[in-house]
Simulated scan of single mutants.
Amino acid sequence: MTTTAHIRYLQRQAIDVARWDACIERSANRLIYGFHFYLDHLTSGQWAALVLEDYKAVMPLTWRRKWGVTYLCQPAFTQQTGIFFTEPISHDSINSFLGILTRHYRFAEIYLNYASGLPTLRIHDNLILPLERPYPQLEARYKKDLVRNLRLAARSGLTYTPDIDLDTAIEAYRSQYAARHPAIRPEDYSRFRKLCLHLQPKGQLILRAAFAGDQLQATALLVRDASRLYLLQSTTLPAGRMTGANHFLIDQLIREWAGSGLTLDFEGSDIRGIAYFYANFGALREPYFFYRHNHLPWPWRLLKS
């Protein structure tokens, strides 16, 4: 059992990033969102942490400040954080981490990763597809609806290409989905772009597109680590909705990375239609958790109730 006495609260500048990243690297529930460079880029360094003993388990605390109140919130393009651990932790240990949050932050709305939740917390859906098998075996699990849409795409003469630049992919996503994601601010896109530029020379940024002739139909922006491909932005242009471009693009990604041993992380979704789309590829459900507390003084408590 973990006691709160063994958990330290550290500001960003006090964190030993080498030990931090080593903990994330060794974690059974490793996700790219937990590495210090990812957090630094997408929060501009505005994060603190809870650290168990000598970095045996860590929990990033991504914060903002408004009206003089510092609170926890989830950064854009960071689906889930929570506790990352090198040895299994119990529900009591998770409660110990969460209990400390209330000492430092009066308000919190964050997402805990798939392995650090509690039965009492609200569940959100993520879908993943392990890519250990050869493509024919993965394709054999495709649903009938998907197979029909791939036939449509084949008749549309689509081509799959890596010849797309970063700004084209990001702007396609923003132009199509900004209204759907109003909480993503212009500065969030700027920070995300800088993260991608950091990852690109390391071979961790993957950009793919579907074209019909010279007309862009769909784009996919992924980042990768040692175990996963994260589909951070998937965009279908208006013309691509008539050609099955997104079905084609995801199928080609699976074909390209089949047998790699990586896991394709679709990053969602709670939206029924999107979840159905990814499930058609044989994706598996991997839930994560929403954590919230509100200890704000009145009347702010009412505003955030």
Rank of each mutant, 00 (worst) to 15 (best):
3 T>C: 12
252 Q>D: 09
54 D>E: 13
101 L>E: 05
289 F>V: 14
199 L>D: 08
180 R>P: 00
120 T>R: 13
111 Y>C: 11
162 P>V: 07
106 R>Q: 05
271 I>K: 03
152 L>N: 07
68 G>H: 05
68 G>Q: 04
185 R>S: 00
83 I>P: 01
143 K>E: 14
194 K>F: 00
192 F>Y: 10
241 R>H: 13
48 A>E: 06
290 F>K: 12
167 D>I: 02
195 L>E: 06
241 R>W: 11
219 T>R: 04
73 C>I: 02
139 E>S: 08
35 F>A: 03
157 G>R: 12
147 V>I: 15
66 K>W: 11
8 R>I: 13
283 A>T: 09
41 H>P: 07
75 P>R: 01
122 R>W: 12
3 T>Y: 10
179 A>N: 00
76 A>M: 07
81 T>S: 01
150 L>Y: 10
266 F>P: 11
104 H>G: 08
146 L>H: 08
63 W>P: 04
253 L>C: 08
231 L>Y: 13
72 L>P: 05
60 P>K: 06
125 D>N: 11
184 I>P: 02
155 R>Q: 13
122 R>S: 15
107 F>A: 03
146 L>S: 01
5 A>M: 11
137 Q>H: 13
173 Y>H: 14
148 R>F: 02
164 I>C: 14
159 T>R: 14
84 F>W: 06
156 S>Y: 12
46 Q>I: 02
173 Y>W: 15
181 H>M: 00
102 T>K: 15
237 L>W: 04
267 E>V: 06
263 T>D: 04
27 S>Q: 06
69 V>N: 02
48 A>R: 06
180 R>G: 01
127 L>P: 00
88 P>C: 03
165 D>T: 07
155 R>K: 14
71 Y>A: 02
303 L>K: 03
46 Q>D: 14
189 Y>P: 00
150 L>A: 10
70 T>D: 03
150 L>P: 05
134 P>T: 13
101 L>T: 11
226 A>V: 07
192 F>W: 08
68 G>K: 07
213 G>L: 04
269 S>T: 12
175 S>G: 08
286 E>R: 13
244 G>S: 10
92 D>Q: 15
149 N>D: 13
159 T>N: 12
23 C>G: 07
274 I>L: 09
104 H>P: 11
142 Y>H: 11
243 T>D: 12
87 E>S: 14
77 F>N: 01
235 T>M: 05
62 T>D: 02
253 L>N: 04
140 A>T: 15
236 T>Q: 05
14 A>P: 03
119 P>E: 09
304 K>M: 11
184 I>C: 05
252 Q>Y: 06
68 G>F: 06
68 G>S: 11
172 A>L: 08
207 L>W: 10
111 Y>Q: 06
160 Y>A: 13
142 Y>T: 10
304 K>I: 03
210 A>I: 15
240 G>Y: 04
170 I>N: 00
168 T>S: 12
131 L>A: 06
268 G>K: 12
42 L>I: 05
271 I>Q: 08
231 L>T: 04
212 A>P: 11
251 D>L: 04
22 A>R: 13
277 F>T: 11
284 L>D: 09
35 F>I: 05
58 V>T: 14
61 L>V: 03
226 A>T: 08
